[in-house]
Amino acid sequence: MTDWDKHIVVDETVLAGKPFVRGTRIAVGLLMNRLADGWTIDDILAAYPQFTRKDILAAIGFSAESLLASRT
């Protein structure tokens, strides 16, 4: 997802600058940990009803883009 910036916020005054899903105080890292633990997108949506599928895909896209950027 290339338009992750519509869903993901990085603000130094919130969560010590960790990226989070817009409109929440839930860090992208927490979502990535849930996925790494074997949760599905549907599991996350059930546990966090404030999220949309696009929010989660944006978090994945943000993470992927951040990792790729750190390798250059």
Rank of each mutant, 00 (worst) to 15 (best):
S66A: 08
T13S: 14
Q50L: 11
T40A: 02
D5N: 11
I26N: 06
K54Y: 07
D37A: 15
M1W: 00
M1P: 11
F51A: 08
G23H: 14
G38S: 07
V10I: 13
T52Q: 10
D5W: 08
A36N: 12
V9I: 14
L31G: 04
D43I: 05
W39Y: 13
F62E: 03
R71D: 00
D55I: 07
L30R: 08
S63H: 05
W4K: 00
Y48K: 10
P19A: 15
E65M: 04
D55F: 08
L31K: 03
L31S: 05
R71E: 03
V28N: 01
D11S: 09
F62V: 00
D42E: 15
T2H: 10
I41R: 08
A27P: 09
A27C: 10
I56N: 03
F20G: 04
A36F: 05
A64C: 02
D11A: 08
W39H: 12
E12I: 06
P49H: 06
Q50A: 13
A27L: 05
I60Q: 04
M32W: 02
E65Q: 04
Q50Y: 05
V28G: 03
T40V: 11
Q50C: 09
A16E: 12
V14I: 15
D42Q: 13
D5T: 12
W39D: 14
T72L: 05
I56Q: 03
N33S: 13
R25S: 13
M1C: 10
D5L: 09
I26Y: 14
R22Q: 13
Q50V: 13
D5S: 14
R25G: 09
R71S: 01
M32F: 01
R22M: 12
A36E: 09
L15R: 10
P19T: 11
L45V: 07
I56P: 03
V9R: 08
D43G: 08
T40S: 15
G17E: 12
K18M: 13
T52I: 08
F51V: 01
K54Q: 11
A47H: 07
T2G: 14
G17C: 13
L57W: 07
